[in-house]
Nucleic acid binder design. Structure first.
Length: 432
RNA sequence: GGCCCCGUAGCGCAGCUGGUUAGCGCGUCGCCCUGUCACGGCGAAGGCCGCGGGUUCGAGUCCCGUCGGGGUCGCCA
């Protein structure tokens, strides 16, 4: 069998003599005229045009619907009228399945018109739209840039359990599951395990799912999302963590430029520039800038949007690091701000006015953990295996977590995070 | 979960203060058109107007309930 040629490789035949090639892909669109038909074939690399004139093959084209998978063997032909300058002529066509059922949406249109519900209900098909594919290519490239940056700084990639014994962090609700007759939970964060990982490897990261049972039905919440987690030891304070965060973001952006220029172009993505140093403000200043009362414990979405605009104007930055969140509002393992324990050595990173990252310095002394848990009225027993980490020597450490889908959503200016999530899980959706 | 808006053909929508047979564009199907590229032309099929109840001589339209969807707020990545 002739080896496969990808649609995107066809242009290399512009100056070559006619060559026999084989394309495999989906029938993206048929354009039938009286004595000939144009068949656009879509594969993972893009689309290619096939010109059919033979009556027997024309009859096949009439019978094969859009989205049917086919093998096409034909001759390359340079033709200025062909998209990309090269097309396939005089083809033999063989369908790999029966004619495909009509697609719920018109995949061949440059801009599909379907609403969110239609897109999600038919995700196995609607993700085939080139613009949809492109959004996930951005996500994939971002994950690659994340991994590559951390590996170059000698971080070890780990995988931590998603079935856990206790509902660890306070705040968000967890999903309970039956675990061989015992109550277990879906991990809402790899937090404890990545700290244990620091005790083992010094520097770890993880790309994986986390689960939040919070009944929040908003454009930026999912019940399951991909968390890009980092944790590192032997830091001075949270600013060291923030510096790594900056490098990681720069690596993600670099990877997007390297690997997905066509997706960037197709979607008209405004790829951000990561400043050499992320602009930093203290939580107190953030409240002032946002015009919020000085005793607000957190930033509301409207405040975040105001701060995003401010960072754009004052620093020309799409990113803004807000540090020093009130200690009482952060998780128990958060390290206080040394000169004023009302505040903490933690931060959020806003990307274009949306909370994208939470991170900071953690406690690293066993006694501090006992004190922090006791002060919050928590029993120590459920944290036994976690606390073991700190009885056996831990470096000052910290880390952060990036919400992948939030990143992608901001990147493509999606109005709803579900637009950039392959198979979103939310309050009302468990399928597909 | 609170509040606001919306459910009409495969998709996107119109349907006015209630009135006879519910429309439009795209898609689908049929016929026509040798160079299209969101091809074009002519024609046809396709609707429990989300579901249940109520008001009325009469409901896609008004009211109540319910299910589903969107936005927003709380909270979060």
């Amino acid at each position: 069998m002739l080896p496969r040629t990808l649609a995107s490789d066809l242009s290399s035949y512009v100056d070559a003599p006619p060559t026999r090639v084989r394309l495999s892909g989906w029938i993206h669109r048929r354009r039938r005229l009286s004595g000939l038909a144009f068949v656009v074939i879509r594969d993972r690399s893009g689309t290619a045009q096939v010109v059919v004139k033979d009556p027997a093959v024309l009859a096949q084209v009439d019978a094969l619907t859009e989205e049917t998978t086919v093998d096409v063997v034909g001759m390359t032909s340079s033709n200025p009228q062909a998209p990309g300058g090269v097309e396939i002529i005089d083809p033999a066509l063989s369908a790999l399945t029966a004619a495909a059922a009509t697609s719920p949406i018109e995949l061949w249109r440059p801009n599909h018109q379907a609403g969110l519900k239609t897109m999600l209900d038919h995700a196995p098909v609607t993700w085939r739209h080139p613009r949809q594919q492109a959004t996930w290519q951005l996500a994939a490239a971002s994950m690659h840039g994340f991994r590559r940056t951390l590996e170059s700084q000698s971080f070890t990639e780990i995988q931590t359990p998603k079935l856990v014994e206790s509902a660890t962090e306070s705040g968000s609700n967890v999903f309970g599951v039956d675990y061989f007759g015992q109550r277990a939970y879906l991990a809402q964060s790899p937090q404890f395990y990545k700290q244990m990982g620091v005790g083992i490897f010094e520097r770890v990261f993880e790309v994986g799912p986390v689960f939040r049972a919070e009944p929040h039905d908003t454009v930026r919440h999912l019940a399951e999302y991909v968390s890009l987690d980092v944790e590192m030891g032997f830091i001075a304070d949270h600013r060291d963590v923030a510096a790594t965060l900056r490098d990681v973001l720069a690596g993600m952006v670099e990877s997007i430029h390297e690997r997905t220029s066509s997706a960037v172009e197709l979607l008209g993505v405004d790829v951000p520039t990561v400043p050499a140093e992320l602009p930093v403000i203290h939580f107190r200043e953030a409240l002032e800038i946002a015009g919020a009362p000085s005793d607000e414990p957190d930033l509301a979405p409207a405040h975040e949007r105001a701060l995003g605009a401010w960072a754009r104007e004052q620093h020309g930055s799409d990113f803004l690091l807000v540090e020093g969140y009130p200690l009482a509002k952060r998780a128990f393992y958060t390290h206080p701000q040394p000169d004023d324990p009302r505040w903490s050595n933690s931060f959020d990173l806003l990307f274009r006015g949306l909370e994208l990252v939470t991170g900071g310095q953690r406690l690293h002394r066993y006694d501090d953990y006992v004190a922090a848990l006791t002060q919050r009225g928590e029993a120590l027993a459920p944290y036994e295996s976690y606390l073991q980490t700190f009885r056996h020597g831990m470096p000052p450490h910290g880390g952060f977590a990036i919400g992948l889908e939030r990143w992608t959503a901001r990147l493509v200016a999606a109005e709803n995070i579900r637009e950039v999530t392959l198979f979103p899980r939310d309050l009302h959706r468990l399928a597909p």
